[in-house]
Every structure is written in C-alpha cells, then in structure tokens.
C-alpha cells in the first residue's frame, strides 16, 4: 500500500517532468514553427553575404517563410552559396524570385528578403535563385561615397588644362 503510493507519486513526477520538457520543446521553442527540416531547400549565390548567419530568417513581404540552413564558399566562382529551407506550405513562389540581403534596422541582424517575380513556374526542392543582390557592406558604401565625392572635386580641375 505504502510502496504503491510511492510508485504512483514517482510516476506522476516523471510524467510532469516529461510534460514540462515537451512544453519547452513545443510551446517555447521553434520546434513547431520550423518543423525541423520539414520544407524544401533552394540555393542562391551572392557576391557578398555580409554578416548573414545560418538560421537567419528568410522573409517575403515581411513574413518569415523559411530560414537560412547552410552557408558555403564556392571555390570555383568565388561566391557564397547560401542554402535556404522554405516551409512546405509556401510552394507557390515563382522561380524567378529576386533574393536580397537586408539588415533589420541600422545595425540589426541580416536576413534574406525575397521579392516575387512573374514566372508561372514555382520554386521546388533544389531550385536556384538566379537573381540576387549582395549585402550592403557599410565600409563599401562609405568608400563609394567618398570616392564619388573625391571624383566630383577632381574632375573640373582635370578638365580645365
């Protein structure tokens, strides 16, 4: 009788602990939203990905449709090869979609934004996005800006003689 009640409470304790673990996995973490690889993979090549990281969101019209699942350097073309996992329900994205790396806020994390094209064929497992635009790297922008400014200043002098 006494042993039985011990067994019952221990059973309840183990069950409560496991329920708590499931709660953390399902309700607190992204297990439910990212169906863990449950989606199709597409790739895109970028000249420069800036600070993009694995697991960065992939957004379309501001809604997250997937995540970056892999980033690699292609030794042949000297480009970054980014693999994205798109959730299965978004299976009507045109295959001429445009991918661009954005920064959330001025200094926030970088993410990939997709802009739908006009094709009637849809993206599926293994598709590659042909049109991409690299991340804006702050140093490059500043560098370009200074170069242009300098150019504006130098040109008139160069033409006068």
């Amino acid at each position: 009788m006494q042993i039985r009640s011990v067994e019952i409470t221990v059973g309840a304790f183990m069950a409560a602990g496991i329920v708590a673990l499931f709660f953390l996995a399902l309700q607190v973490s992204n297990l439910s939203s990212l169906g863990n690889g449950d989606g199709f993979k597409i790739t895109a090549r970028f000249d420069n990905i800036g600070g993009l990281k694995v697991k960065a969101p992939v957004n379309m019209a501001g809604v997250r449709v997937g995540r970056v699942s892999d980033i690699r350097f292609d030794g042949q073309s000297y480009e970054a090869l980014v693999t994205m996992t798109i959730e299965r329900q978004y299976n009507t994205i045109p295959d001429d979609t445009f991918a661009k790396i954005y920064t959330a806020g001025l200094l926030g994390e970088q993410y990939i934004g997709l802009e739908a094209g006009g094709s009637s064929d849809y993206l599926s497992e293994g598709s590659e996005l042909a049109m991409t635009q690299s991340a804006l790297v702050l140093e490059e922008i500043i560098g370009q800006f200074l170069f242009n400014k300098a150019g504006e200043g130098v040109k008139p002098e160069g033409e006068t003689p």
Binding site: A16, G17, A20, F23, L24
Partner: peptide, 11 residues
C-alpha cells in the same frame, strides 16, 4: 526533470 519543471513554470 526538475530543471524542465522549473523552466516551464517560470515561463
């Protein structure tokens, strides 16, 4: 198990 309970209840 106790730690999971703690975190879940904390959330």
């Amino acid at each position: 198990l106790l730690a999971a309970l703690f975190s879940a209840i904390g959330v």
